[in-house]
């Protein structure tokens, strides 16, 4: 049984300018202890989807229109704020992109680390402090006990992200949602943090959803991938399969546009045009206007995500019909 099973999640924002269809019928699942990646460019709805799960969508204007997200037998989208609050930060934790703003500058590192323990589990201060020091050691911050009394501004970006991870993991969650955890960091630091995440995932046996725009990052740590575009899942497959044989034209184009996969001196492959404006209703496949392989039909109906082989699915008419 999957740890988390999201089905047809749809989140819209009702703004003055109109309805922004940020997430449109997204389905994915996470097995216990596995790391999946959700890949997409900005505006693809990857962050909104994960925030929706935890009830962190500002409402209004945001509204979860439909869908279910069953975690451990509980539907996160229907269980009510009270239950959600007890799940959030305990069974499911989240880390965010920017470690500079996600820490409270007026609270010592230790106090911020201990907070979830004290709030959720009513652990004594002494015990919480011991666990916090242990957690700092686990995320590779030496001299944990002394660093508990440090202030956030005394730490560098990489160190803060480690603290954020320690904070997210201190309650030993079953699922960690990491939203662009390394985007704000330099490559050498990014490598350290990804290594750390992979190690903790093994040691603590938790499942991880890694949300990122960086295909290189997911290639390193994820077992399965979901590629999102304009609020929909375009393709899902195991990481090896997806990179070796991308099926959806969008995935293919995205991989080809990376400078690192490229022969020097030749122009890069590009995807012409721009992602669609999510306020205007999209008829047909959202990628059709930019797709080199689109036919008339792609502009008429919206293709659903369908399994085309065991463990892989794609939302493209032509792939489903075996034309591509």
């Amino acid at each position: 049984m999957p740890l988390l099973d999201v089905h047809e999640l749809t989140t819209h924002f009702h703004t003055r300018e109109g309805v922004v269809r940020a997430v449109n019928g997204v389905s994915f699942r996470v097995e216990p202890g596995e790391t999946i990646g959700i890949v997409g460019e900005s505006g693809s709805g990857k962050t909104v989807a994960s925030l929706s799960l935890l009830g962190l969508i500002p409402s209004p204007p945001g509204r979860i229109e439909k869908g279910t997200a069953v975690f451990d037998g509980v539907d996160l989208l229907a269980c009510g704020a009270q239950t959600l609050r007890s799940i959030r930060g305990r069974a499911i934790s989240m880390i965010f992109q920017d470690p500079m703003t996600a820490l409270n500058p007026f609270m010592r590192i230790g106090d911020q680390l201990m907070e979830p323990l004290r709030v959720h589990e009513g652990v004594s201060r002494r015990e919480a402090r011991a666990q916090a020091a242990e957690m700092l050691r686990l995320v590779g911050i030496q001299d944990g006990a002394r660093n508990l009394d440090a202030w956030p501004h005394e730490f560098s970006g990489g160190m803060r992200q480690r603290v954020m991870i320690a904070m997210a993991l201190i309650t030993r969650p079953h699922l960690l949602i990491a939203d662009e955890p390394t985007t704000a960091l330099d490559v050498t630091i990014q490598a350290q943090i990804l290594e750390l995440l992979a190690r903790l995932q093994r040691e603590l046996g938790m499942a991880v959803i890694l949300i990122t725009h960086d295909l290189g990052v997911v290639a390193r740590v994820c077992r399965r991938l979901y590629v999102m575009y304009a609020g929909q899942v375009m393709e899902s497959a195991s990481t090896d399969e997806l990179f070796a044989r991308p099926q959806h034209p969008y995935t293919e184009a995205l991989l080809q546009s990376l400078p690192s996969t490229h022969v020097k001196g030749e122009p890069l492959h590009t995807i012409p045009g721009l992602p669609p404006d999510l306020i205007a209703p999209i008829a047909g496949c959202p990628f059709a206007p930019r797709c080199a392989k689109a036919t008339d039909r792609c502009g008429r109906g919206t293709p659903a995500l369908q399994e085309i082989a065991p463990g892989r699915a794609t939302a493209c008419f032509r792939v489903q019909d075996g034309e591509l």
Partner: peptide, 15 residues
């Protein structure tokens, strides 16, 4: 060397 080896390569097999 460290910088180049730290770049995530979009190729799980090589990674």
């Amino acid at each position: 060397r460290a910088l180049i080896s730290a770049i995530p390569v979009p190729d799980p097999v090589k990674e």
